[in-house]
């Protein structure tokens, strides 16, 4: 398990996390509101995302590689090509097959896939340039309940520890699961599920017991059930300017999308 955060000192890394979070959310919302088939607007949205990626010095190749991960979900919209709104047209080149497709459905399918791909790049940029601790502070500053922020903070602290434990367990299992060629190894599906279930059970058990120790440690450091508040600083003037400019640009791109889209 690897987080996508790439440490750096680019201008994008230094912008206030609140500004980045708001801008990313606005980017994705405006892109979602852009109607299907608004190709010029999509190109501009993509250019904007790529420009910021360039500025942040995060490897664009890496972002593209990660952005492909959501692609399998496009399967869900694939049927739109054939079930989309009429009129239906025979497939070119395959007219003899007599398969009809809906041009509007095709436009919608391509638009959804493109939008999803561009949105994912925006989200990747946010997590590549913002450390989780800044994000947690941001949550608190945005008035997300302290209890919830504390839970996520604790979870993050123990996530890599426990996932290392899981990795070791998986390695132990595979090292005990050699299969002699020609003969079947291990038991049936139920046996395998039981082994995996036992692994899950022991992870949960260890975690519950670990949380007891965490609690004692917290108590010994003066935890009274209330968490200390983090200090809130106003957003710097420059960053506020960036945000307003960015939101204005997004609105403009969206308006262009409305005018050019179907």
């Amino acid at each position: 398990m690897k987080e996508f955060y790439t440490p750096g000192k680019s201008p994008v890394h230094e912008i206030d996390a609140r500004v980045k979070l708001t801008f990313t959310l606005a980017f994705i919302i405006f892109l979602s509101l852009t109607p299907s088939g608004a190709w010029p607007a999509y190109i501009l949205f993509l250019t904007l995302a790529l420009s910021i990626a360039l500025l942040s010095r995060v490897s664009i190749g890496l972002i593209q590689k990660r952005a492909l991960l959501a692609l399998p979900f496009a399967l869900a919209t694939l049927p739109l090509i054939f079930t989309g709104p009429p009129p239906r047209v025979d497939l070119p080149f395959f007219q003899t097959l007599g398969i009809a497709y809906s041009p509007e459905g095709l436009v919608r399918f391509v638009s959804i896939t493109l939008k999803s791909w561009i949105s994912l790049q925006a989200a990747l940029l946010l997590s590549a340039t913002t450390h989780i601790s800044d994000l947690l502070t941001t949550f608190q500053q945005l008035r997300i309940p302290k209890l919830f922020v504390a839970i996520i903070g604790l979870m993050w602290r123990y996530l890599f520890l426990i996932s290392d434990e899981v990795t070791r367990m998986l390695r132990a299992r595979s090292s005990r699961s050699a299969i002699v060629p020609g003969s079947r190894g291990g038991g049936n599906v139920f046996w395998r599920a039981k082994v995996t279930g036992g692994m899950a059970g022991s992870i949960f058990l260890r975690s519950i017991e670990r949380s007891d120790r965490v609690y004692s440690a917290m108590l010994s450091r003066g935890y009274t059930g209330v968490l200390p508040a983090s200090e809130s600083q106003p957003i710097a003037k420059n960053d506020r300017g960036y945000l307003i400019l960015g939101l204005f640009l997004l609105m403009l791109l969206w308006a262009l999308g409305l005018l050019t889209g179907g």
Partner: peptide
């Protein structure tokens, strides 16, 4: 108040536990 660490650590365990899998048949896994 004891539940805060319990919920946090168990969330980490569920997250990490999602890596656990077992092969069903062919390439599919549970």
């Amino acid at each position: 108040e004891r539940d805060l660490p319990l919920i946090g650590v168990l969330a980490a365990a569920i997250f990490a536990g999602q890596m656990l899998n077992f092969s069903v048949t062919g390439g599919t896994s549970g």
